[in-house]
Design a protein around this nucleic acid. Structure first.
Lengths: 260, 260
DNA sequence: GGATTAAATCTTGCATCCAAAAGTGATCAG
DNA sequence: CTGATCACTTTTGGATGCAAGATTTAATCC
């Protein structure tokens, strides 16, 4: 046994000459450092704080996060796989561009995916999941009645997610999760107007009914409709025209997103 | 200038004391080492050489690839984002499991995505792309007449890809590319029987016609049908029942895949 | 013998270090 | 002044080193 363990070295440290002690490199944090980097960077990209075309320098980010470059570089790979950044050989990593159809495109994909998810959820969703869905639907209605926008949106998100999970289709869930963040990014300035809100709620009632009746075809067409209306509303919304400006905007907080 | 360059050090190496020379760490390869790791590991997972549940050890892989652990770890992040491996904290990276519906699930997702892609391609595909598509269609027909299976499949793949690209929808392309490898994995033992082959070709003729006519609705339903038939054929195919065995199989070569 | 646990070993997570590539000026010819 | 060239700086790609967690092995107790 030629090598002392760290604890042994530390124990005799103050009695030994200084070249015998070694500063122990402690791993202070649990979990994964690179996960933190992924969440922070994703958040910053989605909120627009890091604008498209922005070059990410490893040292700056690692210093900001108090970690070395290694986990930051790992985070870049994850973000690249999500299509949020582009890797340039021997050059900086660059925030992916948004093209002008981004919003329509993203919602059309999300729409078809959720339409399929609904269809499959009709066949595969467990009674427990359906029960939970009913509870969420009730909760959402309540938030609507209380004009509690934020809570409504949260419940709405949970419903959509639960339905996708109810499809029990791993590939579908994977693709959906991949696209979802882009929706946040694309719709960052859209808000939910009063009329559309009421309409969306009514659509959700029908969607739930179709799920409960396990009527896949009907659900599929309801979902298509639900998304189509959402996107159209976004396009004709006067606020929509401001969207492109967000690209350049830096640390500004994203507006409350619209519910689907 | 206190520090010698690596080349200078090497030049005087045999005349100098051995502690003065330092083995220069050369960056022998262009491109990214981690890209190599991604392709190899992906290939091995898709072919079944690395079976689900298999734990990947960093050192073993880095040695096999003649690189250090760093790029291998980066490759793991990419594969994790693709859902091909699962990261366990402080534990090995594990090849993702295949569930029993994998094949149906993956093709249903691919089907809806391509259906949407076709619809959007009708509106957005450039004349150049359409021309290229026509050439590919002719090429594919030729391969069919020559009974050149491998070439047929290659052309078929190219057509599907070109159509998806023709949608010009980044989110859609991203999701499609994410799922595509899983299709390879799911269908590894399926082959293309003579009857289905002729049928598939006929479907492709109609698909091309709809694209050329820019008839999005018709194209959408044709795609759905194309995929539905493919999947149904797979399910009733007697060879299908062997699929589950492949999970355990190790380095066996995957069979020629079916065309969609 | 089987359960428990402490020590040795292995593997991961990350910091750090080095060389190559890219970027940045400064210098100089025209 | 413009453009080319070369030294210097910055930044990336990846190899190496080390400590913490996980795993295996050995030892001990009941």
């Amino acid at each position: 046994m030629s090598k002392n363990s760290a604890s042994e070295t530390a124990a005799i440290a103050d009695a030994a000459p200084s070249d015998m002690v070694r500063k122990p490199r402690v791993r202070e944090q649990k979990g994964w450092r690179h996960k933190d980097a992924v969440s922070l960077l994703r958040q910053m990209i989605l909120s627009g704080e890091l604008a498209p075309g922005y070059a990410l320098r490893e040292v700056a980010i690692s210093e900001r996060l108090g970690m070395s470059r290694t986990p930051v570089r790992e985070a870049f790979r994850t973000l690249a796989a999500e299509g949020l950044v582009e890797l340039l050989p021997n050059r900086s990593v660059v925030v992916a561009e948004l093209d002008e159809n981004e919003s329509i495109d993203v919602f059309s994909v999300l729409g078809t995916l959720e339409s399929l998810a609904g269809q499959q959820a009709c066949q595969r969703m467990t009674p427990e999941q359906l029960e939970r869905l009913e509870a969420l639907q009730r909760e959402m209605e309540e938030h609507y009645n209380n004009h509690d926008r934020a809570s409504y949106i949260r419940a709405n998100r949970a419903i959509h997610e639960l339905m996708v999970e109810g499809s029990n289709n791993n590939a579908l869930i994977l693709a959906w999760r991949l696209i979802l963040p882009r929706a946040e990014r694309a719709r960052s300035v859209n808000t939910l107007d009063r009329h559309r809100w009421a309409e969306a709620l009514e659509e959700h009632r029908k969607i739930f009914a179709a799920l409960a009746a396990r009527d896949g075809l009907r659900l599929s067409s309801l979902m298509q409709d639900h998304f189509a209306r959402g996107v159209i509303e976004r396009m004709t919304d006067t606020k929509f025209k401001n969207r492109v400006r967000v690209r350049a905007g830096s640390a500004e907080r994203a507006a409350e997103p619209v519910a689907d």
